[in-house]
Write a protein that binds this DNA or RNA. Structure first.
Lengths: 192, 192
DNA sequence: CTACGAATGTGATGTACATCACCTGATCAG
DNA sequence: CTGATCAGGTGATGTACATCACATTCGTAG
């Protein structure tokens, strides 16, 4: 399926747009392809766009002073990603985004999002709904972090992204769970 | 200042509403008062409303199987709270809300929020913005959880809610930080 | 005032995890 | 092929925290 059709199916689950309205909405997106390993947003850069994933897999991550990496999100097809803090507040990126596999995305600039949100009430509705889902997911993950040990969070992660286990190296899974790769390895191989 | 004026100042920072539009918006809210210790949302109940705090302080929290409590949010004046997962998905509450102090709120039902969002584009814009802020705050807290030790998170908490230190018992602060009250006590009294 | 429960402090002990060190095996460029 | 880099596994050790136990202080209802 082509990118346009994927986006259309995605948004029309939440917002009712006429065909003309969708065409107009779609005209603000720019398709791009990236290779495995390519950096889409690098720390310290200006952030002007957000990204809707058509195929492949991205990661959004933070690197702290000791060079430890924490993954905030794996972005699979029909997921959106960016450094939203930097994007909305017009600050430089503290969160990076790069490609775990070859990836196709649709890019939407911050300005264009705000423009079409104000022009089309249904688009604003869609983005409210989308942000709401992200908020609920983030809150759920926070709770899980406080409440559950690593093994349970590992199982939750595989339930959330079933494709992930064979797709990404284990040290990235550890970076999502917030444990060392050694701990994840021991957890996974504990006979029981 | 009265409730209406507080809400008006709050929303007009983000959305431009005429006086008539604001009156109409406001007509969907119901004022309520609660006493310290009163439960606003109890586990397992239906959740029909969200709450805009006018005065006082609420907490939104989760209790796990071992009866350990985790606080998701302290809701101070001009903050919104509810069990949003239950509210949006029409499921029973897993998150509870109760009063740390005597509290006045404005209640808005899920149905009314959706109604005024669809009637007034600017209101939809406001709620998108509000949810966005919540999302960014939640993501920031998640990162801090993964990256920082308890002492730093404690300092961040006091920066976020400066009034909190004298307002709420320490075991609630521990429940927000996700550590035991003993650990928080030792942290706080470590001479250095 | 008194008394009781709630909030808080503090020691002793156990544990989940990090960190460091080192090893094996896979992949890939030259 | 060779060597290099990356993913992954595993032991030894240290540490931040939980948990349990108990003491102390505070706030509020009687």
């Amino acid at each position: 399926m082509e990118a346009k059709e994927i986006l259309k199916q995605h948004i029309t689950k939440t917002a009712s747009l006429t065909d003309e309205q969708f065409e107009y909405f779609f005209s603000h997106f720019k398709p791009r392809s990236y290779k495995k390993g390519q950096v889409i947003i690098g720390t310290g850069e200006k952030v002007e766009q957000e990204y809707f994933v058509i195929s492949g897999c991205l990661k959004a991550f933070f690197i702290n002073d000791e060079l430890k990496m924490y993954i905030l999100q794996f972005a699979m097809p029909t997921w959106w990603t960016s450094d939203y803090g930097a994007l909305y507040n017009q600050t430089n990126a503290t969160i990076s985004v790069d490609c775990i596999t070859d990836t196709e995305v649709l890019c939407l600039s911050n300005l264009d999002r705000e423009k079409i949100c104000s022009e089309l009430h249904q688009v604003e509705h869609f983005f409210r709904w989308r942000t709401n889902r992200g908020y609920l997911a983030s809150q759920k993950r926070l709770l899980s972090f406080m409440n559950n040990d690593t093994r349970i969070r590992y199982e939750e992660l595989l339930a959330l992204y079933p494709q992930l286990y064979n797709l990404v190296p284990k040290h990235l899974i550890a970076a999502y769970l917030g444990v060392s790769r050694e701990t994840l390895s021991r957890l996974y191989h504990a006979h029981k």
